[in-house]
Computed example of a mutant assay.
Amino acid sequence: MTEAPDPTHFAHVTDWVFDLDNTLYPHHTNLFSQIDVRMTAYVSDLLSLPREEARKLQKELYREYGTTLNGLMIRHAIDPDDFLQKVHDIDYSWLVPDPVLGAAIRQLPGRKFIFTNGDRRHAERAAQQLGILDHFEDIFDIVAAGLTPKPARKTYERFAELHAITGSNAVMFEDLARNLCVPKELGMTTVLVVPRNFEPTFSEIWERDAAYEDDVDFVTDDLAGFLTSIAGRR
């Protein structure tokens, strides 16, 4: 769907920052659908709500507070560790190792990071299953962010300060355009990763961010191919 990027547009990049869910692994894998189901069940059990009402509230919390976890903490003072453990108790065998993606990431010059609203254990297990975990300098998760999720500006600033990242030398890959707004303001190059051929997937209407299109520099539906083009031609 997308044309190969011009590697000269990435010649300045020394820090490569990747979201995890639906970015490092493709939307059609639907790994995140397992997490979504578990979040709905958590809300249902916590508040004794029927599943449909729990799901509606879950999405309301997501929209208003950035993540379901953040909303539940603010409104119901839940234990975040309990939530993270339960919603990430999923089957990672759905993920297929991606040696092409791994080779492309390995060849990129500079440091590579995973920056996720999930927790470290989830990121490590997913990246390990993909065969790419060893290529990353660090994982900046929701705990490292002080439980304040993207797209909060202070979370990006905390990440950048921790790893001494200068925005003009970094690129961020995300599946949600709203999460590229602050990186763009900080001077980062931004890449939106979309479902293959824009076919309907688990992603729902409430996750789509047409209002943030101006914050997106590049769009791809093939992250491995996109990175291979950059790494192979530099």
Rank of each mutant, 00 (worst) to 15 (best):
P80Q: 08
L186A: 06
A224L: 10
D175K: 01
D82L: 14
T2S: 14
E3H: 09
L47V: 03
T29H: 11
P183Y: 03
F140C: 00
R38W: 01
Q58P: 02
E213W: 08
K112S: 10
D214E: 13
D15L: 12
E137Y: 15
F173A: 06
Y65A: 08
T23Q: 09
K184S: 15
S44M: 13
I139V: 00
V13S: 05
T68Q: 05
H163C: 04
W94A: 14
I74W: 04
T228W: 07
H163R: 12
G232V: 07
N30R: 15
R38Y: 03
A104I: 09
K154T: 14
L95T: 07
T189A: 06
M172R: 06
R178C: 04
R120K: 14
M172S: 09
I230C: 07
S93I: 04
Y156S: 09
V87M: 13
I90A: 04
M73L: 04
I139M: 02
D221V: 08
I132M: 13
A170H: 08
G71S: 05
F115P: 04
Q34T: 02
F32K: 01
T148L: 14
V87D: 00
R106C: 05
A11V: 02
R51H: 08
N179S: 08
P195V: 10
V43I: 09
R125P: 01
R75L: 08
L133W: 06
A210S: 15
R111E: 03
E199C: 08
P151S: 02
L20F: 14
M188F: 14
H88T: 08
V182H: 02
A224K: 06
P80V: 11
F136C: 03
P50G: 05
L147P: 00
P195F: 05
G102M: 13
M188Y: 13
S203I: 15
G110C: 10
S229V: 04
A41W: 05
G71T: 07
L69P: 01
V216Y: 05
D45R: 15
M39Y: 00
T228M: 10
S229Q: 07
A54F: 07
R208D: 12
R234K: 02
H27Q: 06
G225N: 05
E3V: 06
F202A: 13
P97S: 06
E204T: 09
E207D: 07
D91W: 04
W206A: 04
L223T: 03
E185I: 00
P183G: 00
M172L: 09
P7S: 00
D15G: 11
D222Q: 07
A123N: 05
H135Q: 15
I114L: 09
P195E: 10
P97G: 07
I205K: 15
L130K: 02
A103W: 01
L192E: 02
Y92E: 10
V194I: 15
F173Y: 15
F113T: 05
T8C: 04
L147N: 04
A160Q: 10
S44E: 12
F159A: 00
L176A: 12
L162E: 09
V182K: 02
E124M: 11
E53P: 01
M188I: 11
Q58C: 02
T67K: 04
D15S: 15
G110V: 09
V43L: 06
K154R: 14
A177D: 01
A224M: 11
Y65R: 05
N117P: 04
L192N: 03
L20K: 14
T148D: 08
Y212D: 15
E124D: 12
E185K: 06
H9L: 00
R208C: 06
G71I: 03
V194Q: 14
L147Q: 02
V193T: 08
